[in-house]
Design a protein around this nucleic acid. Structure first.
Length: 650
DNA sequence: GCCGTTTTCGGCCCGACTGTTTTCAGTCG
């Protein structure tokens, strides 16, 4: 990632610094963005908007990229797998489709470009599934999927998105009570109509309502990667419109919040009409909800709302500042303007008395005239950034370019998709100086890890490391052999100390028993920190955004233990997790804890998730000094060793 | 439906937890 020397984006940079055009992942989110037939794109279908999108390919640019055909196919097979389970079909068949969906989603080549043989080389894809992929790209649909779709309303699959409600219960609700939407389910529970169903009791009702509550608390928001994918597509397409001088996304997406309510896109143009026209005719747009000279609002095929605003080029900076927000940040800087006899709007900074425009062209101009340095979007939450800016004490935020390596990744030895060599090659391509492979350990029984398998992986990894070192030069990448240990309910780990001592680094994470009481959970995490071989606490709260709240542990006690023992806290970059989140990071950094931004990649493509972890780290005000995987290799190794030596002696 | 140093059939991630049951089904990781 060390592509450039810029420590900070230019003040009016059209994109966040971590916009590298890399693929993120198949669509996954919750709430309003639930599976429904129209949301699974159908290739080549002349009637469907998504089909049109597929037919009308737009060249990928450095600014963004179109959705991969792999994601469409992955979504289709995942839907098929769900429907098989709901209809009581062969669970092994469903699993086969699930596995194929994951493998296709994580496959490096576009499945659209593969023939039968090429498709069958993807692990988990045999003749039958390969033929369905071809059928999909030939005719825009797969007959087997259409058949099962015809039997089950899309809403029944929606029901399975509710935590604790699986395919069997969803089907029972549909068959017995004809329930096929979340609203109908809520009504039925309130009417106590579930009471007569076999397998449903009062606790079930309670849990379902709680699950729905979790989803609704997330509101109509989507995960950041889903919004980012769409925003990058739209920006890429609008950037090609004649008369479009600049085009960026703003709003909470530019601030890299973990969930996004709607997408704001800004265009600088002298004449708004051609841009508006091009926008409303984009294939991703299903409905125009408002249409004017400066603003157009639409709904997209993915259910997300998008606002496009066209600004005169000389008002760009003020407009970008205004539409990036947050609202609270804008209020703070407008107050500063008022105190100086100025008025700030999306059109510029004006003198209140004369009404004269003072500045508006760049964000930096506006901030500067108010006596502030340019404030990175990730900080604009009114969490003290304005005061820090006035004092000249804004942090020099960590950037994706600062990251020298990824310290939490998986291979197909456990639940990853890609073999060791492929992961290492992908890491090298990202320009890393070091890279750790951290497959699961034996206590996650489903992963079937054994000491023998682990040692064999270590042997292969050392061999690869020798090969990389042999190349010499500055491009060489060092490989670290690590593991992701499971912290059991007592805080114990998978392997005895003598085995742990053989690893270059150990990540330790909670994977089960989330409902222990607060004291037990706290003790459990603190014990893991105190283990001399544990270098990193992985996804520390174990939350899944919109689905599972974080552990009810005394996080302050855990942060203090991390600081005391030299254990780093992970910022897990997976968009479902982003764990620690920004607020917890802000708390943790006060203890002097070190952090590590990891992808937790289960395929080579997932390595690119790191951008979201870096965004979260920025929102937590972290500098590269705070983040151990920005450090040079030798310093990192000292951190990993030093902790052990000190704690072993203690 | 996939796959194979357990290979063309017969397994497939396996155990725990929860709530509803009274011996187990469903869900989850």
């Amino acid at each position: 990632m060390r592509r450039g020397s810029t420590r900070r984006p230019p003040p009016d940079h059209p994109h966040p610094p971590f916009l590298d055009g890399a693929r993120v992942r198949p669509q996954t989110t919750w709430g309003s963005w639930l599976p429904s037939p129209e949301r699974v794109p159908r290739a080549g279908s002349p009637s469907g908007p998504s089909g049109a999108r597929v037919a009308r390919r737009v060249p990928t640019t450095t600014l963004g990229r179109v959705a991969r055909s792999n994601d469409e196919v992955a979504a289709l097979f995942q839907e098929y797998a769900d429907l098989i389970l709901i209809t009581g079909g062969d669970p092994f068949k469903a699993r086969a489709y699930e596995k194929a969906a994951r493998a296709i989603g994580g496959h490096h080549a576009e499945v659209r470009d593969l023939d039968l043989k090429g498709l069958q080389k993807i692990p988990g894809v045999g003749k039958s599934i390969a033929e369905k992929v071809l059928e999909y790209f030939r005719g825009g649909s797969v007959s087997a999927v259409e058949e099962v779709r015809a039997k089950i309303p899309a809403g029944v699959r929606q029901l399975t998105m509710i935590p604790t409600l699986g395919p069997r219960k969803a089907m029972t609700l549909y068959e017995e009570l004809h329930i096929s939407s979340i609203d109908e389910l809520v009504d039925a529970i309130h009417q106590e109509r579930l009471r007569d169903l076999k397998g449903f009791g009062p606790r079930t009702e309670e849990k379902i309502l709680h699950g729905i509550g979790l989803m609704q608390a997330a509101g109509d928001r989507v995960l950041v990667d889903v919004a980012m994918d769409l925003a990058e597509e739209l920006v890429s397409e609008l950037s090609h419109v004649r008369g479009c001088l600049r085009c960026v996304y703003a709003g909470s997406l530019r601030r890299l919040r973990e969930t996004i309510g709607d997408i704001d896109i800004l265009v600088a143009a002298r004449d708004s009409e051609p841009v508006m026209r091009a926008f409303t005719s984009l294939p991703q747009i299903t409905e125009v909800t408002a249409h004017g000279d400066t603003k157009t609002s639409v709904r997209t095929t993915r259910g997300l709302a998008v606002d496009l605003r066209v600004l005169p080029p000389d008002a760009w900076g003020a407009g970008l500042l205004y539409f990036t927000g947050s609202r609270a940040h804008n209020i703070r800087i407008r107050e500063i303007a008022v105190h100086q006899g100025l008025r700030l709007s999306e059109y510029g900074l004006f003198d209140v008395d004369s009404g004269d425009l003072i500045v508006s062209e760049t964000e930096e101009d506006v901030y500067s005239r108010l006596g502030l340095p340019w404030i990175p979007p990730a900080l604009r939450e009114d969490r003290g950034e304005v005061e820090a800016g006035l004092r000249g004490e804004l942090p020099e935020l960590v950037t994706e370019e600062d990251i020298r390596g990824d310290l939490h990744t998986h291979t197909d030895l456990t639940d990853g998709l890609a073999p060791l060599e492929e992961m290492v090659a992908a890491a090298e391509q990202r320009g890393y100086s070091y890279f750790a492979v951290t497959d699961h350990a034996p206590n996650l029984y489903m992963q079937r890890m054994t000491e023998e398998r682990m040692l064999e992986q270590r042997r292969q990894l050392h061999e690869l490391d020798r090969r990389h070192r042999g190349r010499g030069g500055s491009g060489r990448m060092r490989l670290l052999h690590g593991t992701e240990l499971n912290i059991d309910p007592d805080g114990e780990l998978d392997w005895p100390d003598d085995v742990l001592a053989g690893f270059d680094l150990c990540v330790a994470s909670v994977h089960s028993h989330f409902n222990q009481d607060r004291a037990a959970l706290t003790r459990r995490l603190v014990r893991a920190c105190e283990n001399p071989y544990v270098n990193v606490i992985g996804h520390p709260t174990t939350r899944v955004i919109g689905k599972r709240p974080g552990l009810d542990a005394d996080l302050d006690a855990v942060f203090a233990a991390c600081a005391r023992t030299g254990t780093a806290l992970e910022i897990n970059s997976h968009p479902d997790r982003l764990d620690l989140g920004d607020e917890a990071i802000l708390r943790a950094r006060r203890y002097g804890v070190k952090f590590v931004v990891n992808s937790d990649a289960h395929s080579a493509l997932h390595l690119a998730h790191l951008r979201f972890g870096v965004g979260t780290a920025q929102r937590g005000w972290l500098t590269s000094e705070d983040v151990i995987n920005t450090w040079p290799y030798a310093r990192l190794r000292r951190f990993l060793r030093k902790g052990r030596a000190e704690r072993s002696a203690a």
